Simulated assay, not measured.
Amino acid sequence: MDIKDQATTALAEIAAVERRTRTALVYQRASAFLILWGALVAIGAALNQAFPDRSEAIWYSVDGVGLMGTCVLAFRRAQDARQADPAALRVVASLVVLCAYGVAWSYLLAPAGHDRLAVFWSTLMMMGYVVIGVWQGPLFTILGVGGTVLSLAAYFLAGPWLHLWIGAIFVLAFVLGGLLLYRQGVGDS
């Protein structure tokens, strides 16, 4: 192998390490957002199951706390980096856009009932996971597709326990997914 081939091989290996490092950082940063939202949605789903007549207040509270927590996480990352973290700011902006889209459709779908709205929101968030997977890696896509399948199954099979099932889906897809992403982001060391 001549010098030119060795240099080409070395540059390819450096590029591969750079891609893996970038992916690991994305996974590590995304994990906190996913764990936050997974826990909040699970709590909201349990409260909604127990107090269905207070559904609107429960979800406005969950969304408010979640948005504040998301902003705190994003801006804390920016302070840690001593500059604006474009990735964290894009996460916040994407979440706001996705939620605005969901709110607009929720008002149109409201006559369909709470159960259909719960499945709509679950599949909407899972669709966000799938889209992220297109850009960042197959793990997001797998979690999103799996959460969507489970959400649709919940609608048809869970009966009166639908909201608890949706909460469990968010624990599986977001909390456990966030922990798995964190572990992949920091490595197995």
Rank of each mutant, 00 (worst) to 15 (best):
M68V: 15
A153L: 14
V103I: 14
L73T: 02
M126I: 00
V72I: 12
F120E: 05
N48V: 04
V130H: 01
R77M: 13
A84T: 13
C71A: 13
G146M: 15
P86T: 14
L139N: 07
L143E: 05
V119D: 03
A154E: 09
R90G: 08
L124K: 10
G146K: 09
V72N: 06
P86Q: 13
M68E: 03
M126P: 00
E56I: 12
G64K: 08
V92A: 06
T141Q: 12
D53I: 00
G144A: 02
Y129H: 11
N48P: 02
Q83E: 13
L117I: 07
T70V: 00
A158L: 00
D85Y: 01
A110H: 11
L143P: 02
Y107F: 15
T141G: 14
Q49V: 03
G144M: 00
Y155N: 07
T141W: 06
W59N: 01
M68I: 15
W105G: 05
D63L: 15
L150H: 08
R90S: 14
L109T: 03
V130R: 01
L73N: 03
A153Y: 09
R54H: 15
Q136L: 04
R116Q: 14
G113R: 09
V134W: 14
A87C: 00
S106I: 03
V119L: 03
Y107M: 09
W121F: 12
V145G: 03
V149N: 10
W121Q: 05
R82M: 12
I142N: 05
S106Q: 12
A110S: 07
V131F: 01
Y155S: 06
L143D: 04
Q136G: 04
L143Q: 11
Q136W: 08
A158H: 09
D85A: 00
W135G: 09
F140Q: 06
R77F: 09
A57V: 02
V72M: 03
S122V: 01
V119M: 04
V145P: 01
L124S: 06
V131K: 07
P138S: 14
W59S: 02
L139C: 02
S55E: 10
Y101L: 15
A112N: 06
Y107P: 00
T70K: 01
G147M: 04
V96E: 07
Y129S: 06
S61D: 02
P86Y: 08
V97M: 13
Y60P: 01
A104D: 08
L143A: 13
W121P: 01
L124C: 05
T70E: 01
P138V: 12
R90F: 11
S61R: 08
L143G: 05
I132G: 08
A104F: 13
C71Y: 11
S151G: 09
L98C: 03
V97F: 15
P52R: 10
G69L: 00
A153S: 10
